[in-house]
């Protein structure tokens, strides 16, 4: 099963996205968050992201959904820090909508390619 990691500068945003995504993907166990710094302040921490990737990995790869700015650069750093060989990809997708569809896709056992594709298709999801 594909794992998911939600990266946000804010711990509350990361936890909130997890809560929302699991509403849609009940029973999905491979969703981990890396929100804020260890002490709860706003920011991103490459080491925490790396640990979340390792936890989320069940052997079929891990998709990262990250918010703006240092969310991406810290996620890229986290991938370089990994000591295990894990197929990790950063989705070029809006973090909330991307996470919801990625969790649904991963939960039904789809491949990492399908999960990424579904998340990235959310870039074209218009609200008006």
């Amino acid at each position: 099963m594909v794992g998911l990691v939600i990266v946000s500068h804010s711990p509350k945003i990361a936890e909130g996205i997890k809560e929302l995504a699991l509403e849609m993907a009940q029973g999905y166990t491979q969703l981990y968050t890396a929100g804020g710094l260890e002490d709860g302040t706003i920011g991103t921490d490459a080491v925490r992201i790396m640990e979340a990737i390792v936890s989320a990995n069940a052997g079929d790869g891990v998709v990262i959904l990250a918010d703006l700015g240092s969310g991406i650069i810290s996620a890229e750093t986290a991938i370089d820090l990994l000591e295990e060989d894990i197929d990790v990809r950063i989705a070029d997708a809006p973090v909330v909508e991307g996470a919801i569809v990625a969790a649904v896709e991963a939960n039904i056992g789809n491949s990492i390619d399908q999960v990424i594709q579904a998340a990235e298709a959310m870039r074209e999801f218009h609200k008006q």
Binding site: H9, G43, T44, D45, V47, S70, T77
Partner: peptide
């Protein structure tokens, strides 16, 4: 490693 983890912004991964 500490800067990567504790700075919080993009300068963390850059200086780290």
């Amino acid at each position: 490693m500490t800067l990567l983890s504790k700075v919080g912004g993009a300068s963390g991964p850059l200086y780290g």
